[in-house]
Design a protein around this nucleic acid. Sequence first.
DNA 1: CGGTCTCACGACACTTTTGCGACAGCGCCG
DNA 2: CGGCGCTGTCGCAAAAGTGTCGTGAGACCG
Lengths: 229, 229
Amino acid sequence: MTPYVLVVEDEDALATLLDYNLMKEGFRVERAADGEEALLRVAEEPPDLVVLDWMLPKVSGVEVCRQLRAGSETRRTPVLMLTARGEEADKVRGLDTGADDYVVKPFAMSELVARIRALLRRTRPELMEERLEYADLVLDRARHRVTRGDKDVHLGPTEYRLLDFLMQRPGRVFSRERLLDAVWGANTYVEVRTVDVHVGRLRKALRREGEPDLIRTVRSAGYALDLEG
Amino acid sequence: MTPYVLVVEDEDALATLLDYNLMKEGFRVERAADGEEALLRVAEEPPDLVVLDWMLPKVSGVEVCRQLRAGSETRRTPVLMLTARGEEADKVRGLDTGADDYVVKPFAMSELVARIRALLRRTRPELMEERLEYADLVLDRARHRVTRGDKDVHLGPTEYRLLDFLMQRPGRVFSRERLLDAVWGANTYVEVRTVDVHVGRLRKALRREGEPDLIRTVRSAGYALDLEG
DNA sequence: CGGTCTCACGACACTTTTGCGACAGCGCCG
DNA sequence: CGGCGCTGTCGCAAAAGTGTCGTGAGACCG
């Protein structure tokens, strides 16, 4: 979980307010003060959703949006536009910009949050799911609790996030690099092999006598959550 | 309980009176002196109910009400209008604009409180629940009393509110930030770690020889009311 | 069937996060 | 006033979790 939202807004006070409130709502937030910085950050780590001010220094919101649509990694990243009252609201509505939704300033924070939630639910339902299941494994995000066949499994924070990520796409193989990005965050500097260690720990925690191993190692490729080790 | 009521009233004496009385009745109260401030506060933290003066500087009560109805988060927030005597004719329109109830100034405080209670009971029954239970824990809101297995538990005001909040969703994990918002109020500036201290105090107060700890710590995530520490 | 590569795993030193006792400040009440 | 109950902050020690390394077992390849 912890969807990653990039807030692109030049007005500092508003950016801070957004940051604070979205953080509070359980999102991971990064900020960019202009279009240029926004594109840099997106390149660093593609966000799950972008909140984009219409008017921006250097590269305008519309242009940022266009470029997002051009990138293969970000083509489907939902964009929520912030527009001032009279400001070209019709154009945004017209959707020529490629924004998926918009709110008009000034807006209620609660409305913004609701719209963000709605967008994410539409585009990335697995991020919003309260409960992930695979085989006899259950991960309950609200309770922050993992069980395997009714028995509680205790995980450290990192193993928990790792499992959460793997459970979003069971069966799929992820490279160590991909896992580092997803679980540790894009700009953390950690040995790649550290992933092995945590996968090992997760395996151990998930291990049940007689039950099959749920994590599959794909030699020289990565790991996957999968019946049949 | 501790429903959060936003009082929007420009006349200072009346606002203070309302604040004082509602507080006394067990509500958490915030004040806004005009429509603009009201909308800001609502954006910060959506209240459980709004007491709204009909006549307001900057943005009128009707307009505030209309905007509340526009926000998806606040669409269902009950609004209680305060109208002056001469504004009788406007009563109907007040209800047209989406207010859920109204009282005519001057009014008896007890009537206002009764109407607030009625509205909340209708819209947010879980907030008005008289009695919360979990395991052998009982929190009686009417008596403002907590017992664990027949034995009285003494709590300070903060621990009481904290427990009340946790008991509304047992098992769920709340971050320290979320708890600060819910228990201390959204715009109070208190160290995050203070939550730990109060959780600690609550734990101690709830502790019974031989019984399990009812509060679960989730490392790097928060706390939950839960059997099975 | 060796030579490589890759991975699992235990050990360990280091960080981060929590629990807790101590303490000073505050508002209230007799 | 002076005590009392409550609060918020500190600092420290314990607990829990983290990242790196070395070793050895197995997998893959020609």
